[in-house]
Amino acid sequence: MTAEQKKSWEIRLEDLTLGYEDKVVLNKINASIPGGKISVILGSSGGGKSTLLRHLVGLRRPMSGKIILDKYDMFAMPDKEFRALRRRMGMLFQDGALLGSMNLADNVALPLREHTSLPEEVIREVVLYNLDLVGLAQAADYYPNELSGGMRKRAGLARAMVAAPPILLCDEPTSGLDPINSGQMDALLLNLKEQNPDMTIVVVSHDIESLFTIADHVMILHGGGIAFNGTLEELKNTQDQFLKRFLDRETIYEESRKEEHRSLRPETQEEVRNALDKWLGRN
């Protein structure tokens, strides 16, 4: 691959079938993820969001079909070029995936130390700059097990960004975070996008609030296929009942409240109550 500087990288999925061993998760999907935008991939749990992301970054090979980054067919390339292409991607893993034996600064410096001959003082400066971007410059010497989940995610983002990749993939950046940390993570992604307008950011999430905050483009996976692929505006104006239901938590809540569930027989209730009373010493 040449060292040309493409403005922004589009990702195209062509007849893509993904899965594990003989279990198909996504079947013959065709879609395009626009370059230079923040695209959010949504879907129910087990719907294939993270699977798709792992394939996009080349950690798994698809069962069939193509993933095309700009004009490069990822899995048809020789290994050397495939690896060169993958260096153009940064990935934020769900829990940051920081190496536990290194402090934050060393974690963030790792790609630079391994792949460049930059002097140590330059690496240190770049690392501190990136940690500062995510608000962790003061925690450079901390080890991952000394940090909260949100801080680990932000450090993971700093590491993903340190080599200034044109494509950034984020696996559930707000999962498990409190609303303040979730908001900070969304703001971070938007700041990154502002500073790097050509960067293609793909975020896997099921955080609807985050979707409305950061997304330019949305892909919704459902039932082994793509239920929606378009802009956030198109999604907001959709008349599709499934999509409206997917986005409207209130409706799901009301429906779930109305669902009837089986109840215990009175004699079972009595027996359990007596047993618990006895156990808890209640008269």
Partner: peptide, 21 residues
């Protein structure tokens, strides 16, 4: 533990050979 916490995947994504590393 590195495998199940995706640290090895992270090395691979950074194009760092986990066998050598």
């Amino acid at each position: 533990v590195m495998r199940i916490s995706e640290q090895l995947d992270a090395l691979e994504v950074m194009d760092i050979n986990p066998y050598a590393f």
